[in-house]
Amino acid sequence: MSAPSEKPTPGWLAALPAAWLAVFFLVPFAIMLGVSVAHRVPGGFYEPGFELASYARFLTPFFGKILLTSVALSAGAAAICVALAFPFTVILARMGRRAQTLVLVALLAVLSLSEVIIGFSLSTLLSKTAGIGNFFAWLGLIAESRAYTPSFFALMTGLCYLALPYAVLVLYPPVSRLDPELGEAARIMGASPMRAFWTVTVPMLRAPLMGAGILVFVFTLGVYLLPQVLGQPAHWTLSVHITDQAIFQSNLPFAAAMAVLLLIVSLALVGLTLLLGRDRAGAA
């Protein structure tokens, strides 16, 4: 008699979120796929059709440069962020709950900040009148204040600023689940703290570290405003060009084709991270 009320919600209720996400999430992707093979009408929009002209543009040097820029910037940011975030997370996970909560609030606050605000804040910090140039001049390191933006250095700083909290939060669950007694055991057996870190902690976390690197890579691939605020036109990434083609060049098919490529790359990389995680779970 209690059988009909075993579950907290009736089965048909799942139709609501399923239909909602199908209409507003899957259908847009399907349309985008359709647009990417549609025929471009110069100066106008596009007309339905099937041609691979937009995809063929991937083979041009113009596109090759964009792809190379995007990949190089994201790979650099991922390497720097994981290298900085890993020791940070290990230390964080051993703090008391109060201290951990405070640090996490700070990280979440930075993580939630709009790219616009981060770009604006960093370009102020690196500017001539309000930034570190003033500070260095005051210290006597340089003769006169100067601006450090726009530049490759400014852009990389911005990417790392954006992605560092993300890297910490991705590493936080696996690091905090690591048994602290393992490190202690190594130390009791006579290993120095540094040695215990490199021979016990790091190898145990190899898969999460690689996973974090990949996720930061995908995360920074989506960066759109920072290259425009902190970088030069040569630093424009795939995401900037997708928007540029869609809004300013009115070439929706090419924008959609680039987005489809980005989608495939991201899905493949996220899938790879999930596989890495599964291997680890299987081994444990």
Binding site: F25, P28, F29, I31, M32, V218, F219, L221, G222, Y224, S239, I242, T243, A246, A255, A256, A259, L262, L263, S266, L267, V270
Partner: peptide
């Protein structure tokens, strides 16, 4: 999980 620019274009 996906770069937001993809969803944005979608």
């Amino acid at each position: 999980m996906l770069p937001p620019v993809i969803s944005a274009l979608g």
